[in-house]
């Protein structure tokens, strides 16, 4: 029974990391099935939705094992998905044993973000400035968009850290970003207000849920696809509400 138990732990850990950090549903299902089959387990079935993982398999002569876990958090960290993918590939072709795979997965689970948090704030600013230019602003508009983008990103991460409500953090970030943009234009830094606000909001766009929703729907995971699409829609609506509020109040 020991082997089945160990494989169950490995599979659930791998699946939890992948699902939490933004992998598509079909990728999680495929990875779990491949790893379990590589460990000579029979009758492997996995069912993954956006918020939970079910997996069952049979060890020869010991009967079936079945477990599920609930996944509450959904972060954006595609690097961890790539790392888990690598571990599962090495395990399937037999380069590492199950103990080594388990240790590596635990390491991945503990590693911090791939990029320091200040770099993410900075990148939000650069993305804000760049997109304000691409959407028709002038060179002078990139600076206020940069400042507003950094502010929105800082508020997004800090508010989320203290309040732990994602949708409210997005709402606040959009509101503060819009307010900063309006204030900067009012002070005479930058001229095209609309383009600055668009640039500020672009880093808040829910890119990972949106692409994953399309992928999941296409590959037949209808439940996961629809629920991810709903999540992305709620995020977009909270951003739109935040910016609408700041425009209504201050313009």
């Amino acid at each position: 029974m020991a082997k089945a138990d160990e494989m169950m732990d490995i599979c659930l850990l791998a699946g939890e990391i992948m699902l939490t950090y933004g992998a598509e549903t079909y990728r999680v299902e495929e990875t779990l099935e491949r790893m379990a089959k590589a460990a000579n387990l029979k009758n492997v079935h996995s069912f993954v939705t956006t918020t939970g993982i079910f997996i069952s398999f049979e060890e020869n002569g010991h009967g079936d094992v079945m477990q599920m876990i609930r996944v509450d958090d959904r972060y954006h960290d595609l690097n961890k998905v790539a790392l888990v993918n690598q571990v599962s590939r090495e395990f399937v072709i037999g380069e590492i044993t199950s103990e080594e795979a388990h240790d590596k997965l635990k390491d991945i689970y503990r590693t911090p973000l791939n990029y320091p948090i200040w770099l993410i704030h900075f990148a939000s600013g650069i993305a804000g400035g760049g997109f304000s230019y691409l959407f028709g602003g002038g060179i002078k508009d990139t600076l206020p968009a940069f400042i507003a983008g950094v502010t929105a990103s800082v508020f997004l991460i800090e508010v989320e850290k203290y309040l732990k409500v994602k949708f409210f953090a997005e709402f606040i970030a959009a509101f503060v970003g819009g307010t900063v943009a309006i204030a900067l234009v009012f002070l005479g830094i930058g001229t095209n207000l609309n383009q600055i606000i668009i640039g500020t909001l672009m880093p808040l766009v829910p890119g990972v849920p949106l692409t994953n929703a399309v992928r999941d729907l296409m590959s037949g995971d209808l439940v996961a696809g629809v629920s991810r699409g709903a999540e992305a829609t709620i995020t977009s609506l909270s951003i739109a509400t935040g910016i609408a509020l700041s425009i209504t109040l201050f313009l």
Binding site: L78, N79, N114, L119, M202, G207
Partner: peptide, 13 residues
């Protein structure tokens, strides 16, 4: 620049 920044925001490898 904007695209690479976006990649950093989503923490790609």
């Amino acid at each position: 620049l904007a695209t690479v920044s976006f990649a950093i925001i989503f923490s790609v490898p």
